[in-house]
Computed example of a mutant assay.
Amino acid sequence: MAEPGTGAKVVARFNRHLLDAGLGELRRQLAYKTVWYGSALIVLDRNEPTASKCSKCRERNPSSKPSDKHFTCPHCGHDVSRRDNSVRNIYQTARRQLSTSVAPGTEDTQNALRGGDPPLVGNGSGPPPMTGPLPP
Score class of each variant (00 low, 15 high):
H78M: 01
D117Y: 13
R95H: 12
G122M: 07
V87G: 05
L19D: 07
P66D: 08
P74N: 07
P66I: 06
H17L: 10
G132R: 00
R95P: 01
A2H: 10
S64Y: 13
S67G: 04
R58T: 12
Q92L: 07
E3F: 06
P119Y: 00
C76Y: 02
H17A: 10
N111E: 11
V10D: 11
R46L: 15
S125R: 14
D68C: 07
P4R: 08
L26C: 06
P133R: 10
K33F: 05
P74E: 02
R46T: 07
D45S: 09
N123I: 05
A8C: 03
A103S: 15
R82V: 03
E25H: 10
T109L: 12
R28S: 11
R83Q: 12
C73W: 00
D20N: 12
W36M: 10
T93L: 14
E3I: 15
P74D: 14
A2W: 13
Q110D: 14
R95D: 15
T109I: 14
L30I: 14
T50E: 01
A112M: 08
K65S: 01
S55N: 13
T131Q: 12
P129N: 04
Q97V: 11
P135A: 10
V102M: 02
V11Y: 07
R46Y: 04
P4Q: 05
A40C: 03
H78N: 10
P136V: 10
D20E: 12
P136T: 13
Q97H: 09
T50S: 11
Q110V: 11
R60N: 08
Q92T: 02
S99W: 02
S81G: 13
R88Q: 12
D45L: 02
V43P: 04
V35R: 02
L113A: 03
A31N: 07
G105H: 00
A40H: 13
S81I: 01
E107I: 11
P135I: 02
R114S: 12
D117R: 15
S39I: 02
P128W: 06
